[in-house]
Design a protein around this nucleic acid. Structure first.
Lengths: 160, 160
DNA sequence: GGTTTTAGTACGTGACACCAATCAAATTAG
DNA sequence: CTAATTTGATTGGTGTCACGTACTAAAACC
Protein backbone atom coordinates (compact mmCIF):
# COMPACT_ATOMS: atom_id res chain seq x y z
CA UNK A 1 0.00 0.00 0.00
CA UNK A 2 2.40 2.63 1.23
CA UNK A 3 5.40 3.09 -0.99
CA UNK A 4 8.67 3.49 0.89
CA UNK A 5 11.31 5.48 -0.97
CA UNK A 6 9.16 7.14 -3.58
CA UNK A 7 7.36 10.44 -3.65
CA UNK A 8 9.63 13.16 -2.21
CA UNK A 9 7.49 15.29 0.11
CA UNK A 10 3.92 14.77 -0.99
CA UNK A 11 1.71 17.28 0.81
CA UNK A 12 1.40 15.15 3.91
CA UNK A 13 -1.62 15.81 6.01
CA UNK A 14 -1.05 17.17 9.45
CA UNK A 15 -0.76 14.62 12.25
CA UNK A 16 -2.16 17.04 14.79
CA UNK A 17 -0.31 18.56 17.66
CA UNK A 18 -0.60 15.67 20.04
CA UNK A 19 0.37 12.90 17.66
CA UNK A 20 2.95 15.07 16.01
CA UNK A 21 4.68 15.81 19.27
CA UNK A 22 4.36 12.23 20.43
CA UNK A 23 6.00 10.88 17.32
CA UNK A 24 8.59 13.59 17.32
CA UNK A 25 9.51 12.63 20.85
CA UNK A 26 9.86 9.01 19.81
CA UNK A 27 12.06 10.06 16.95
CA UNK A 28 14.32 12.13 19.16
CA UNK A 29 14.49 9.47 21.83
CA UNK A 30 15.35 6.70 19.45
CA UNK A 31 18.01 8.83 17.83
CA UNK A 32 19.52 9.43 21.22
CA UNK A 33 19.23 5.77 22.15
CA UNK A 34 20.92 4.72 18.95
CA UNK A 35 23.81 7.13 19.25
CA UNK A 36 24.31 6.50 22.95
CA UNK A 37 24.23 2.80 22.23
CA UNK A 38 27.22 3.18 19.96
CA UNK A 39 29.16 4.10 23.07
CA UNK A 40 27.54 1.43 25.19
CA UNK A 41 25.48 4.00 26.99
CA UNK A 42 21.78 3.89 27.73
CA UNK A 43 19.60 6.95 27.44
CA UNK A 44 19.45 7.29 31.20
CA UNK A 45 23.19 6.98 31.60
CA UNK A 46 23.68 9.62 28.95
CA UNK A 47 21.17 11.87 30.57
CA UNK A 48 22.91 11.46 33.88
CA UNK A 49 26.29 12.32 32.39
CA UNK A 50 24.70 15.31 30.71
CA UNK A 51 23.45 16.52 34.04
CA UNK A 52 26.82 15.97 35.66
CA UNK A 53 28.52 18.06 33.04
CA UNK A 54 27.75 21.17 34.98
CA UNK A 55 26.71 19.97 38.41
CA UNK A 56 27.93 17.90 41.32
CA UNK A 57 24.74 16.77 42.96
CA UNK A 58 24.26 14.31 45.75
CA UNK A 59 22.64 10.99 44.93
CA UNK A 60 19.39 12.39 46.12
CA UNK A 61 19.56 15.51 44.01
CA UNK A 62 20.58 13.45 41.04
CA UNK A 63 17.52 11.31 41.49
CA UNK A 64 15.45 14.43 41.65
CA UNK A 65 16.91 15.70 38.39
CA UNK A 66 16.25 12.43 36.65
CA UNK A 67 12.86 11.94 38.21
CA UNK A 68 13.96 8.59 39.54
CA UNK A 69 13.68 6.85 42.85
CA UNK A 70 16.70 6.96 45.13
CA UNK A 71 17.04 3.24 44.92
CA UNK A 72 17.37 3.48 41.16
CA UNK A 73 20.22 5.94 41.48
CA UNK A 74 22.46 3.63 43.45
CA UNK A 75 22.70 1.10 40.66
CA UNK A 76 22.90 3.76 38.00
CA UNK A 77 25.88 5.41 39.64
CA UNK A 78 27.37 2.03 40.51
CA UNK A 79 27.48 0.97 36.90
CA UNK A 80 28.83 4.31 35.71
CA UNK A 81 31.43 4.32 38.44
CA UNK A 82 32.52 0.80 37.57
CA UNK A 83 33.23 2.12 34.09
CA UNK A 84 35.13 5.07 35.47
CA UNK A 85 32.66 7.63 34.20
CA UNK A 86 31.68 9.15 37.53
CA UNK A 87 32.97 9.45 41.06
CA UNK A 88 31.34 9.24 44.46
CA UNK A 89 32.91 11.66 46.89
CA UNK A 90 31.86 11.66 50.55
CA UNK A 91 30.29 14.96 51.42
CA UNK A 92 32.25 17.06 53.89
CA UNK A 93 29.18 18.55 55.48
CA UNK A 94 26.93 15.52 55.71
CA UNK A 95 28.61 12.25 56.44
CA UNK A 96 25.67 10.33 54.99
CA UNK A 97 25.75 11.73 51.50
CA UNK A 98 28.00 11.65 48.50
CA UNK A 99 28.68 14.05 45.74
CA UNK A 100 28.56 12.54 42.30
CA UNK A 101 31.02 13.99 39.84
CA UNK A 102 31.81 13.20 36.25
CA UNK A 103 35.32 12.08 35.43
CA UNK A 104 37.37 13.27 32.50
CA UNK A 105 36.64 10.04 30.72
CA UNK A 106 32.94 10.49 31.35
CA UNK A 107 33.00 14.05 30.18
CA UNK A 108 34.78 13.11 27.03
CA UNK A 109 32.31 10.35 26.36
CA UNK A 110 29.23 12.46 26.86
CA UNK A 111 30.69 15.22 24.76
CA UNK A 112 31.07 12.83 21.88
CA UNK A 113 27.53 11.60 22.23
CA UNK A 114 26.23 15.15 22.51
CA UNK A 115 28.07 16.21 19.39
CA UNK A 116 26.82 13.31 17.35
CA UNK A 117 23.34 13.75 18.70
CA UNK A 118 23.34 17.43 17.79
CA UNK A 119 24.48 16.55 14.33
CA UNK A 120 21.69 14.05 13.98
CA UNK A 121 19.00 16.38 15.20
CA UNK A 122 20.19 19.17 12.96
CA UNK A 123 19.90 16.78 10.09
CA UNK A 124 16.37 15.77 11.05
CA UNK A 125 15.39 19.38 11.16
CA UNK A 126 16.90 20.24 7.82
CA UNK A 127 13.63 19.98 5.90
CA UNK A 128 12.45 23.05 7.80
CA UNK A 129 13.36 26.52 6.57
CA UNK A 130 15.71 28.46 8.83
CA UNK A 131 12.92 30.69 10.08
CA UNK A 132 10.93 27.71 11.22
CA UNK A 133 13.91 26.16 12.91
CA UNK A 134 14.35 29.31 14.94
CA UNK A 135 10.70 29.29 15.78
CA UNK A 136 10.77 25.65 16.73
CA UNK A 137 13.67 26.26 19.03
CA UNK A 138 11.85 29.09 20.74
CA UNK A 139 8.64 27.12 21.05
CA UNK A 140 10.35 24.08 22.51
CA UNK A 141 12.15 26.28 24.98
CA UNK A 142 8.92 27.97 25.87
CA UNK A 143 7.08 24.74 26.55
CA UNK A 144 9.88 23.14 28.48
CA UNK A 145 10.58 26.13 30.68
CA UNK A 146 6.91 26.73 31.34
CA UNK A 147 6.61 23.15 32.47
CA UNK A 148 9.71 23.32 34.64
CA UNK A 149 8.32 26.49 36.08
CA UNK A 150 5.07 24.70 36.92
CA UNK A 151 6.89 22.00 38.77
CA UNK A 152 9.40 24.27 40.41
CA UNK A 153 12.08 22.17 38.81
CA UNK A 154 15.33 23.29 37.29
CA UNK A 155 15.94 20.81 34.49
CA UNK A 156 18.27 21.55 31.55
CA UNK A 157 20.38 18.67 30.38
CA UNK A 158 22.85 20.89 28.64
CA UNK A 159 22.80 24.54 29.68
CA UNK A 160 24.53 27.44 27.95
CA UNK B 1 18.49 31.15 44.16
CA UNK B 2 15.88 29.94 41.74
CA UNK B 3 12.39 30.79 42.83
CA UNK B 4 9.85 28.10 42.01
CA UNK B 5 6.37 29.51 41.51
CA UNK B 6 7.17 33.17 41.11
CA UNK B 7 7.97 35.23 38.07
CA UNK B 8 5.50 34.41 35.28
CA UNK B 9 7.53 34.03 32.08
CA UNK B 10 10.75 35.96 32.51
CA UNK B 11 12.36 36.32 29.09
CA UNK B 12 14.02 32.92 29.23
CA UNK B 13 16.98 32.52 26.98
CA UNK B 14 16.67 30.05 24.16
CA UNK B 15 17.89 26.53 24.84
CA UNK B 16 18.80 26.00 21.23
CA UNK B 17 17.19 23.63 18.82
CA UNK B 18 18.98 20.51 19.89
CA UNK B 19 18.60 20.92 23.63
CA UNK B 20 15.13 22.28 23.26
CA UNK B 21 13.97 19.29 21.27
CA UNK B 22 15.77 16.89 23.55
CA UNK B 23 14.14 18.26 26.64
CA UNK B 24 10.80 18.51 24.94
CA UNK B 25 11.05 14.85 24.07
CA UNK B 26 11.81 14.01 27.67
CA UNK B 27 8.84 16.04 28.75
CA UNK B 28 6.50 14.30 26.35
CA UNK B 29 7.84 10.87 27.17
CA UNK B 30 7.58 11.31 30.89
CA UNK B 31 4.05 12.62 30.53
CA UNK B 32 3.18 9.53 28.57
CA UNK B 33 4.93 7.28 31.03
CA UNK B 34 3.12 8.84 33.93
CA UNK B 35 -0.31 8.60 32.40
CA UNK B 36 0.22 5.11 31.07
CA UNK B 37 1.46 4.12 34.48
CA UNK B 38 -1.85 5.09 35.99
CA UNK B 39 -3.33 2.22 34.00
CA UNK B 40 -0.45 -0.11 34.74
CA UNK B 41 0.86 0.26 31.25
CA UNK B 42 4.43 0.91 30.18
CA UNK B 43 5.26 3.26 27.35
CA UNK B 44 6.04 0.36 25.07
CA UNK B 45 2.82 -1.45 25.89
CA UNK B 46 0.90 1.72 25.22
CA UNK B 47 2.70 2.26 21.98
CA UNK B 48 1.92 -1.28 20.95
CA UNK B 49 -1.74 -0.87 21.73
CA UNK B 50 -1.69 2.40 19.82
CA UNK B 51 -0.33 0.62 16.80
CA UNK B 52 -2.88 -2.16 17.10
CA UNK B 53 -5.70 0.34 17.12
CA UNK B 54 -5.71 0.37 13.38
CA UNK B 55 -3.67 -2.63 12.35
CA UNK B 56 -3.47 -6.37 12.77
CA UNK B 57 0.16 -7.10 12.16
CA UNK B 58 2.03 -10.34 12.60
CA UNK B 59 4.53 -10.55 15.43
CA UNK B 60 7.23 -9.75 12.98
CA UNK B 61 5.54 -6.70 11.55
CA UNK B 62 4.76 -5.51 15.04
CA UNK B 63 8.41 -5.74 15.91
CA UNK B 64 9.22 -3.75 12.84
CA UNK B 65 6.77 -1.04 13.81
CA UNK B 66 8.21 -0.80 17.28
CA UNK B 67 11.77 -1.11 16.13
CA UNK B 68 12.24 -4.10 18.40
CA UNK B 69 13.75 -7.51 17.99
CA UNK B 70 11.42 -10.42 17.38
CA UNK B 71 12.45 -11.98 20.63
CA UNK B 72 11.31 -8.88 22.48
CA UNK B 73 7.88 -9.08 20.92
CA UNK B 74 7.05 -12.49 22.26
CA UNK B 75 7.19 -11.36 25.86
CA UNK B 76 5.54 -8.07 25.09
CA UNK B 77 2.56 -9.75 23.52
CA UNK B 78 2.58 -12.47 26.15
CA UNK B 79 2.14 -9.98 28.94
CA UNK B 80 -0.51 -8.02 27.11
CA UNK B 81 -2.33 -11.19 26.21
CA UNK B 82 -2.25 -12.39 29.79
CA UNK B 83 -4.04 -9.19 30.68
CA UNK B 84 -6.57 -9.72 27.94
CA UNK B 85 -5.49 -6.67 25.97
CA UNK B 86 -4.48 -8.40 22.77
CA UNK B 87 -5.08 -11.65 20.92
CA UNK B 88 -2.88 -13.98 18.95
CA UNK B 89 -4.72 -15.45 16.01
CA UNK B 90 -3.04 -18.10 13.87
CA UNK B 91 -2.64 -16.85 10.36
CA UNK B 92 -4.71 -18.67 7.77
CA UNK B 93 -2.13 -18.29 5.05
CA UNK B 94 1.07 -19.00 6.95
CA UNK B 95 0.86 -21.62 9.61
CA UNK B 96 3.96 -20.24 11.30
CA UNK B 97 2.70 -16.77 12.01
CA UNK B 98 0.08 -15.10 14.13
CA UNK B 99 -1.92 -11.98 13.77
CA UNK B 100 -1.92 -9.77 16.80
CA UNK B 101 -5.17 -7.96 17.42
CA UNK B 102 -6.31 -5.61 20.11
CA UNK B 103 -9.28 -6.69 22.22
CA UNK B 104 -12.16 -4.46 23.21
CA UNK B 105 -10.68 -4.15 26.66
CA UNK B 106 -7.35 -3.17 25.19
CA UNK B 107 -8.93 -0.65 22.88
CA UNK B 108 -10.85 0.89 25.69
CA UNK B 109 -7.74 1.13 27.80
CA UNK B 110 -5.58 2.72 25.15
CA UNK B 111 -8.34 5.13 24.28
CA UNK B 112 -8.42 6.34 27.85
CA UNK B 113 -4.68 6.78 27.93
CA UNK B 114 -4.72 8.57 24.60
CA UNK B 115 -7.43 10.93 25.74
CA UNK B 116 -5.67 11.81 28.93
CA UNK B 117 -2.38 12.14 27.14
CA UNK B 118 -3.89 14.49 24.59
CA UNK B 119 -5.33 16.56 27.37
CA UNK B 120 -1.95 16.77 29.04
CA UNK B 121 -0.09 17.74 25.91
CA UNK B 122 -2.64 20.38 25.04
CA UNK B 123 -2.11 21.79 28.47
CA UNK B 124 1.66 21.85 28.06
CA UNK B 125 1.27 23.69 24.81
CA UNK B 126 -1.09 26.27 26.17
CA UNK B 127 1.57 28.92 26.72
CA UNK B 128 1.93 29.12 22.96
CA UNK B 129 -0.40 31.32 20.92
CA UNK B 130 -2.77 29.46 18.61
CA UNK B 131 -0.77 30.39 15.55
CA UNK B 132 2.35 28.88 16.99
CA UNK B 133 0.55 25.74 17.99
CA UNK B 134 -0.57 25.30 14.42
CA UNK B 135 2.94 25.90 13.25
CA UNK B 136 4.37 23.50 15.77
CA UNK B 137 1.98 20.82 14.65
CA UNK B 138 2.98 21.30 11.03
CA UNK B 139 6.67 21.33 11.83
CA UNK B 140 6.50 18.19 13.94
CA UNK B 141 4.59 16.47 11.18
CA UNK B 142 7.11 17.62 8.64
CA UNK B 143 10.08 16.32 10.58
CA UNK B 144 8.49 13.03 11.47
CA UNK B 145 7.24 12.26 7.99
CA UNK B 146 10.51 13.29 6.39
CA UNK B 147 12.30 10.90 8.70
CA UNK B 148 9.85 8.08 8.08
CA UNK B 149 10.31 8.71 4.40
CA UNK B 150 14.06 8.40 4.79
CA UNK B 151 13.76 5.07 6.48
CA UNK B 152 10.97 3.75 4.31
CA UNK B 153 8.97 3.27 7.45
CA UNK B 154 5.31 3.86 7.94
CA UNK B 155 5.00 4.84 11.61
CA UNK B 156 1.99 6.78 12.94
CA UNK B 157 0.77 5.79 16.35
CA UNK B 158 -2.61 7.28 15.88
CA UNK B 159 -3.58 7.97 12.28
CA UNK B 160 -6.47 10.11 11.10
C1' DG C 1 13.65 -34.02 -2.33
C1' DG C 2 17.04 -31.28 -0.07
C1' DT C 3 18.78 -26.81 1.24
C1' DT C 4 17.91 -22.36 2.84
C1' DT C 5 14.88 -18.61 4.63
C1' DT C 6 11.52 -17.12 7.63
C1' DA C 7 8.11 -16.76 11.88
C1' DG C 8 7.98 -17.39 16.28
C1' DT C 9 9.50 -19.17 20.88
C1' DA C 10 12.76 -20.40 24.76
C1' DC C 11 16.53 -19.19 27.49
C1' DG C 12 20.09 -16.52 29.60
C1' DT C 13 21.83 -11.87 30.61
C1' DG C 14 21.78 -7.22 31.88
C1' DA C 15 19.89 -2.51 32.45
C1' DC C 16 16.29 -0.16 34.67
C1' DA C 17 12.55 1.00 37.75
C1' DC C 18 9.96 0.51 41.78
C1' DC C 19 8.81 -0.78 46.69
C1' DA C 20 9.90 -2.12 51.29
C1' DA C 21 13.20 -2.64 54.69
C1' DT C 22 17.45 -1.26 56.82
C1' DC C 23 21.25 1.64 58.84
C1' DA C 24 23.76 5.47 60.15
C1' DA C 25 23.89 10.26 60.48
C1' DA C 26 21.39 14.55 61.14
C1' DT C 27 17.55 17.17 62.90
C1' DT C 28 13.89 18.15 65.86
C1' DA C 29 11.40 17.55 70.29
C1' DG C 30 10.67 17.62 74.90
C1' DC D 1 20.94 16.79 76.52
C1' DT D 2 18.67 12.28 75.59
C1' DA D 3 14.72 10.56 72.71
C1' DA D 4 12.05 10.52 68.61
C1' DT D 5 11.92 11.58 63.93
C1' DT D 6 13.57 12.54 59.52
C1' DT D 7 16.84 12.03 55.90
C1' DG D 8 20.68 10.02 52.55
C1' DA D 9 21.88 6.07 50.80
C1' DT D 10 22.11 0.92 50.17
C1' DT D 11 20.16 -3.73 49.86
C1' DG D 12 17.04 -7.16 48.26
C1' DG D 13 13.09 -8.60 45.76
C1' DT D 14 10.07 -8.17 41.70
C1' DG D 15 8.79 -6.98 37.09
C1' DT D 16 9.47 -4.91 32.43
C1' DC D 17 12.12 -4.64 28.53
C1' DA D 18 15.81 -5.38 25.18
C1' DC D 19 19.18 -8.23 23.20
C1' DG D 20 21.70 -12.32 21.35
C1' DT D 21 21.76 -17.19 20.65
C1' DA D 22 19.78 -21.37 19.85
C1' DC D 23 15.85 -24.09 18.25
C1' DT D 24 11.48 -25.77 15.87
C1' DA D 25 8.38 -25.84 12.30
C1' DA D 26 6.62 -24.14 8.16
C1' DA D 27 7.70 -21.84 3.55
C1' DA D 28 10.28 -20.91 -0.24
C1' DC D 29 13.89 -21.95 -3.30
C1' DC D 30 16.33 -24.84 -6.71
Amino acid sequence: MTSPHDTPPPPTEDLGLVDGLAQLSFLVQSALAEIAGQYDLSVVQTRMLGILRDREPTMNQLGHHLGLDKSSITGLVDRAQRRGLVTRTPSTVDRRSFQVSITDAGRQLVEQVAAQFAERIERCVEPLPATDRKRLSRMATRIVTADAHDHGIDLRTDPR
